[in-house]
Amino acid sequence: MSNAIRVMRLDLIMSKQYAKTFLICVAFSIVYAVLLRVFLGGVLFSAFLAATASCYPFATEETCGAGRMYGMLPIRRRQAVAGRYLYTVAVGIATILVCVGISAVAYLVAGMDVDIGDMAAGLVAGFVMFIVSVAFQIPGYYKLGATKGRVFTFIPMALYFGSYALIGKVGVQRILSVLGPFADPKFMALGIVALMVIMLLISFEVSVKIYREKGM
């Protein structure tokens, strides 16, 4: 087992104290999706919750000085940061998948319409929102800690609202015409995946740099 995976497992133990609250919130997002019949809204809500979970190991570290524990463990700093990203991505994937799965089952049981397209759209939108959020949040937590670093949570939110306002003002068709050949669905899907990967990689390298300079 690599050290990054060990750190991911350690982060899960570090987050144990928040598990109950987190699961209640995820359940609430599913109820929200079913009761208000907003499948995508529920998935995006769960993605937002999953992104907040990236804060849990930082919060535990901050409250009890557990950062020193990571410092004495037989791991390198880069591995410690990689483990933190693995933990975050694992929690994100699990949360979004669970939310999409349970919401879909609940929709079917309640006799409401939901198809593969809705689920795929939910998954894609959820992962994009999640990755964009954590790519900003994690370096912020490394730099400022769990409490002060929360300010970075608002950067992706500002991006969402900015994009929403732009689309509303300019119109989807005009944006697609500006994108030209890049507006092709396959091209866009690949572009989104590549963008997410690049964002995560840049975020990771920034976090490693901050962690190295700041120390444990």
């Binding site: 050290n3 104290q17 020193r68 004495m72 791991i75």
Partner: peptide, 18 residues
């Protein structure tokens, strides 16, 4: 670092476990 820290134990003024 990894080999060295396998051989190290550390105790600080306050406990580092949550």
């Amino acid at each position: 670092e990894e080999t060295v820290k396998e051989q190290l134990g550390a105790v600080f003024d306050t406990c580092y476990f949550p």
